[in-house]
Every structure is written in C-alpha cells, then in structure tokens.
C-alpha cells in the first residue's frame, strides 16, 4: 500500500513540476508569439502547433540519447532518475501550454489591446490585463499540459526506466502489472490515475468556472 502511495506521489510530483516549468516557459513564449509581430512568427507557431502533438516515445528516445552515458549530457548522470522524466515531460507539455496560450491571447479582441495602451498601460500592465482577460482559456491550457504528461507513458518508461522505488510512476506501473498478468492491479492503478486526473481537473475547472461567474456578475456593474 505504501508502495502505491509512493508511486502516486512520484507521478504527481514529476508531472506537476513538469507542468509548472512548462507554464513558466509557455506563458511568456506563447504571449510573445500571440502579440509579437516579427519575421518567422507563423513559422514558429506552426512548429509549436506540431509540437503539441509530439509523440512521448519520440521525446523519450531523444532525451534518452542525450542523457545516456555515451550521449552529450551523459556526464550529468541523469538517465533513469526522476529529473530525466521531468525533462522529457516538460518537453512534451511546453508546446501544449505555449500553443494554447498563443491561441487564447489571439482570440481576444485586438481592440482591447489598443484600448489598454490608449489608457496609458505599460506593456507589462497590458500583458497582465490580457492574461487576466484570457484566464479561462489559459487555465484550460494548464489542464491540457498537465493532462498530456500525467497520462504519458512512452517517455517515462524510456528515460525513467520504471525502476521500483525510484522512477516507477503510475503509468509505467500499470504497464508492469499488465505484463505480469496482474490485470486486477493494473485496473486498480488505472482507476486511481483516472480519479486523480479527474480531481485535479475538477478543481481547476472549479476555479475556472468560479472566475467565469465572477466575470458575468461583475459585467452589469461596468
């Protein structure tokens, strides 16, 4: 039982850290892509949008090759550690958060941006108000990023190695139980994973909907 608890905890830790890092990368980068007007912008956006569908096994393979002792970053001795999984999952989630952030901000009425600048907002203040305005789709971006890594298996297996007590996460444990023929355990772990993902999304949705309600209620007062 404690083992299941530790596996679950590791899954949550690794995927949460990866999602937070993705947010730190994706939010500014996505904003830059949505608001910026520079050469190659469409090209970068198309790359990011492709990255949103990056197959985790491909990410796992590339990260593994980098981190193997024979690889360029082998000296860091990170292969088969939780940090390796975090690196891979960040690479998977970052394009998702970036792409959805860009889409969320692009969906805003462009006049809103002009208005903010016209009212004398600094660029920083403007971005802040745009984020506030788009917070519902931005939360959706966060959920999508988290969802893409908590359920991911290929990269965790390849760069983590599914080592018991060290890098075994829920998805790799499910594969292992299935390969042992312990379908009952596999189903129990799957249920646990689904319930956890549901609870996290439920709380994020709750925050999202609460702010939507607040928006709606404050609207007539304007």
């Amino acid at each position: 039982m404690t083992e299941v608890f530790n596996i679950t905890l590791l899954s949550l830790q690794v995927s949460t850290i990866a999602t937070v890092i993705s947010l730190l990368i994706g939010l500014p980068f996505g904003t830059l892509l949505a608001l910026g007007n520079f050469r190659g912008r469409s090209f970068i956006l198309s790359i990011i949008n492709t990255g949103m569908a990056l197959p985790p096994v491909v990410v796992g393979l590339v990260v593994a090759i980098m981190l193997w002792r024979s690889g360029p970053l082998g000296g860091l001795r990170l292969i088969y550690t939780p940090i390796a999984i975090i690196i891979a999952q960040t690479i998977i989630a970052a394009p998702v958060v970036t792409g959805l952030t860009a889409a969320a901000l692009e969906a805003l009425d462009p006049r809103f941006q002009q208005q903010l600048l016209g009212l004398g907002a600094s660029r920083g203040q403007m971005v802040w108000y745009l984020w506030r305005e788009a917070r519902l789709p931005l939360l959706a971006a966060l959920m999508a990023g988290f969802g893409s890594v908590i359920s991911e298996i290929g990269a965790s297996m390849m760069v983590g190695g599914n080592i018991r007590g060290q890098t075994r996460v829920l998805t790799t444990a499910i594969v292992l139980e299935t390969s042992k023929g312990e379908f009952g355990n596999a189903l129990a772990l799957s249920t646990l994973l689904l319930v956890l993902t549901y609870l996290i999304n439920l709380s994020l949705t709750w925050i999202q909907q609460r702010s939507r309600k607040a928006n709606w209620q404050s609207a007539p007062r304007k």
Partner: peptide
C-alpha cells in the same frame, strides 16, 4: 528486496540490459 543497490526495472530483457549497462 528493498536494498538501494537492487534495481527492479519491471521491463523486458533488452531494456533491463540497457539499464544495467548505464548503471
């Protein structure tokens, strides 16, 4: 079981050999 030098991969023979090699 439970020793910190004893790693259980829960994977096939090929993956296990790769991990043994890396470690």
């Amino acid at each position: 079981t439970g020793q910190d030098w004893y790693l259980e991969t829960g994977q096939g023979q090929g993956a296990t050999l790769s991990i043994a090699s890396e470690k």
